[in-house]
Design a protein around this nucleic acid. Structure first.
Length: 826
RNA sequence: GCUCCAGUGGCGGAAUCGGUAGACGCGUUGGACUUAAAAUCCAAUUGGGCGUAUAACCCAGUGCCAGUUCAAGUCUGGCCUGGAGCACCA
């Protein structure tokens, strides 16, 4: 072993060796219990960034720790390799997206290996390869068969920049999640997956996810947005085209006696039938204007509300009162029934609208102690029913049920549970994705591609320079085909699938990555899944994580697997910051992992990225911090290299230890206990690393004073070799090099995790804290075995305490065994 | 507006159960070694009483205000600040 630490040299050597010896191969058959550790797989953008380094290091340390604890650990990696950047690069540089993607994967693979990650590369999964997307397409067909995939014409989110539609989940603040440009509405016929069928299950099963943070669970619950209310139906009394009925959804049926008008969304399907000839022109103009607006404008809550009357009227079935119909863009076509009953006195939005257009108001709920006149604001709190016929005097919360029941009994209403979650729009008008396996025949209509004809391969004869349509439509070989039913001419669907489909099941594929007969073997997927620990960024809280839960539930119902939640435990790691801001190219505050590997080595990078903050919190990168970690590894190296002659690999702890030896043995046991607990308890790697330092410091101190008897050498060896094993999940190369230099035959990464002896993992004496009236006044070293009475005596014998309690009365004495005595005096 | 999370030295952060606040590190200051530097090592480092050495002592202190308790960074209630998510969802 060299005197000096040369990380680059030893890291390269061991990476090669691990690869040659297949050190991290995971067998499917093993007596050991399974453990599936998973990082969210990367998009092959070109280069790793520090967020990747953090994510993969965290998971890698978990995987290695679990392996040493005796688990058969599955720790795979793959590539989320369909998506727009490849296509954009193709357009810009004339490169083929497949080639661009392959190059990026090759480079990033090299980087992952340089980080020393313990992946089983035999299970690598790449979503853009036909052998993978064949099964993505196959799964689509299963969804289709089950009625969970359907096509419909709808107002959808459109991004001009990306020239494609987007799912609701991909619109952030009215902007595209990828390019940040403003999203528009377009009417298009598109493919959807019926995630709404699973809304209730997706919501309820959140309770099962004990291993998920509350933040993610509440975000998903809010997104699903369950509410309970009623559908009430209103007869239109003067529609130009005969009798009509308008159903509305409301969570406030208790306010039904206070309705003074009714609003339908500008996109409401029957709006034309509800408009009188006199109002037609104004209504048309209003609707045209609404269509032009962007989502941001449309949904802005501080915009002044606008609307126009339709000229027709409804009857309130509770009161017989007649009230007008309006259209206004504060009613949303996609939620509820697209129509709203308006009660200005008890809803802020209706109040603002009624004020503006001078519509009447009627108070139906009142707080008897402090009645509101509803002149300046709506009264939205609880109260007692007034002006509500037979319901007068009832509490409004009780009236919700009572009034709905009346509507049910009399045939104009029903109880209704409503969700905000919408179906998942999965069509994309882009090339670089899995083609939707469907053909359109003039005679037979929509026909799924037979499973035997999968995969539907992406064509290569395409022109990426086209504007305004998907490059795939320029292929001469792709579009024209024959109908699988009648054999007549037909054309293929040219839309591809949202990449989030590919990532909704990739983690299952790891269980059987090379299967060419099936998407995976059922026994294997049931053996390895659910994922025991999933690690990734919070940005997927309601995208990937919700979609994957939906896929799992749907696939369970299809009989493909037997579990109903994919990820048992979820760790959402914080962002990597530099100078307090998120690292980004535009801000110019990025740190290139390659440079860190080159200057300090991967072990330093791994150690540092775990050292300063707990994994869930944001991490501020600092050059001084890296330097500090590098120095620490040097210090560890020196500790071993300068004392090599005193280390016995097959040490035996002496039976009769001297006091000094004893202390080091205790310190090691305490470190083992502390580190094991810190990892087990939510992966607190930052404190794990502080304990590495404490132990290293303690060994240095001890070695300084040691007389090198045989016993001392054995104790020292125990300490050094334990330190190496404890550090091996983090400093993977350094510990391996030391381990082998000291005479080991097998890899340190195949060793068992250190065990501690509870009797040795504590100090022989304790510090007795003496408080007077709750304030610490003295600390006394005492023997651990002291009884409570003895502790009290020791406390009272303290000179400091004597002085403080002199002339005072001891009211009470509290003794906490092995810890403290509190004297309450007056 | 609603929901969730967080707030501790100059900085990152530590503190199973309510029981020694500030572990470990970064930075800073002083010192040793060196012709010099780097590296390394030693010491100090919450604020104040207190710009002197030594040894000690006292007071205050975990965003703010209350409360529970012998004892609160930790529990309860009410705020303030920051971050994240949702948001005209009837």
């Amino acid at each position: 072993m060299k005197e000096q630490y040369f990380p680059q040299e030893i890291e390269k050597k061991w990476q090669q060796k691990w690869q040659d010896e297949n050190t991290f191969y995971t067998p499917d058959d093993s007596d050991k219990p399974k453990y599936f550790a998973l990082s969210m797989f990367p998009y092959p953008s070109g280069k790793l960034h520090m967020g990747h380094v953090r994510n993969y290091t965290i998971t890698d340390v978990i995987a290695r720790f679990k392996k040493m604890q005796g688990f058969n650990v599955l720790h795979p990696i793959g590539w989320d390799s369909f998506g727009l950047p490849a296509e954009n690069a193709a357009m810009k540089h004339g490169a083929n997206p497949a080639v661009w993607t392959d190059d990026n994967i090759a480079y990033m693979t090299k980087q992952l290996k340089m980080l020393g990650l313990s992946y089983d590369w035999n299970r690598e999964v790449t979503t853009c390869k036909p052998e993978y997307y064949k099964w993505t397409q196959w799964l689509f067909l299963q969804f289709y068969k089950k009625g969970l995939a359907y096509k419909k014409e709808a107002a959808v989110n459109w991004c001009d920049e990306c020239a494609t539609v987007l799912a609701n989940e991909q619109v952030i603040d009215g902007k595209c999640w990828r390019c940040d440009s403003v999203v528009k509405k377009k009417y298009l016929s598109q493919w959807f997956l019926k995630i709404t069928d699973y809304a209730e299950q997706l919501l309820q099963d959140l309770d099962k996810l004990d291993g998920w943070g509350d933040n993610v669970k509440t975000m998903q619950a809010n997104w699903i947005g369950k509410s309970k209310g009623a559908i009430l139906k209103f007869k239109v009394c003067d529609a130009p085209c005969g009798e009509m009925e308008i159903p509305v959804y409301t969570t406030r049926p208790d306010t039904a006696y206070g309705i003074t008008y009714l609003v339908v969304a500008p996109e409401y399907k029957d709006i034309e039938k509800l408009t009188t000839p006199e109002n037609k022109e104004a209504v048309e103009a209003y609707r045209a204007n609404a269509r032009k607006m962007t989502e941001i404008e449309r949904l802005s809550t501080d915009r002044i509300k606008t609307g126009v009357p339709l000229g027709t009227h409804c009857i309130n079935p509770f009161t017989g009162e007649k009230f007008p119909l309006w259209t206004a863009d504060y009613a949303l076509a996609e939620y509820g029934t697209g129509a709203v009953m308006a009660v200005p006195t008890h809803d802020e939005r209706d109040f603002a609208f009624a004020k503006k257009y001078n519509l009447p108001m009627k108070i139906v709920i009142s707080n008897p102690e402090n009645p509101s006149d509803c002149k300046d604001a709506a009264y939205v709190d609880e109260g007692v029913m007034v002006n509500s016929g037979e319901f007068n005097g009832m509490k409004n919360v009780d009236a919700k049920t009572a009034i709905t029941q009346k509507a049910v009994d009399e045939g104009f209403g029903e109880f209704k549970t409503q969700y905000r979650l919408r179906d998942w729009l999965i069509s994309r008008q882009r090339y670089w994705g899995a083609p939707i396996p469907v053909v359109y025949c003039d005679k037979c209509g929509i026909q799924p591609v037979p499973e035997s004809e999968l995969p539907v391969l992406l064509p290569e004869d395409v022109d990426f320079s086209v504007v305004g349509k998907s490059p795939i439509t320029t292929s001469k070989t792709f579009t024209e085909t024959t109908c699988p039913v009648c054999g007549g001419p037909a054309h293929r669907e040219t839309d591809t699938m949202d990449t989030f489909i590919c990532s909704s099941w990739y983690y299952m594929r790891y269980s059987d990555a090379k299967n060419s007969e099936k998407c995976f073997d059922k026994d294997l997927v049931n053996k390895w899944l659910p994922v025991d620990q999933y690690v990734g960024g919070i940005e997927h809280a309601i995208l990937h994580l919700l979609y994957s839960r939906f896929f799992t539930k749907a696939m369970k119902d299809m009989g493909l697997l037997d579990f109903d939640e994919p990820f048992k435990n979820l760790l959402t790691q914080g962002m990597v910051l530099k100078d307090g801001a998120k690292m980004s190219k535009s801000k110019g505050n990025t740190v290139d992992p390659d440079e860190i590997f080159e200057n300090y080595g991967a072990d330093t990078a791994r150690l540092f990225i775990l050292s300063d903050s707990p994994p869930a919190r944001d991490f501020d990168w600092s050059d001084a911090g890296v330097e500090g970690c590098y120095k620490f590894l040097n210090r560890v190296w020196r500790l071993v290299s300068t004392n090599q002659d005193k280390i016995i690999f097959d040490y035996k702890l002496p039976e009769n230890r001297t006091k000094a030896d004893d202390d080091l043995v205790r310190i090691v046991h305490m470190a083992i206990k502390g580190i094991t607990n810190d990892i087990s308890n939510e992966f607190q790697f930052n404190t794990v690393i502080s304990k590495y330092r404490e132990l290293t410091n303690a060994i240095y101190d001890w070695a300084d004073k040691a007389e090198w008897t045989e016993d001392a050498k054995n104790v020292f060896s125990f300490a050094i070799l334990s330190l190496m094993k404890l550090m091996s999940p983090v400093a993977v190369h350094l510990t391996e090099e030391v381990w082998s230099s000291l005479g080991a035959k097998d890899s340190i990464h195949n060793q068992e995790w250190c065990k501690w002896d509870e009797n040795l993992a504590k100090t022989s004496s304790i510090t007795l804290v003496v408080q007077v009236n709750g304030k610490v006044k003295d600390k006394i070293d005492v023997d651990e075995g002291l009884s409570q009475d003895e502790m009290k005596e020791v406390a009272l014998a303290s000179d400091k305490v004597k002085a403080l309690i002199e002339g005072k009365e001891i009211v009470k004495v509290i003794v906490v065994p092995k810890k403290l005595v509190n004297l309450v005096v007056k």
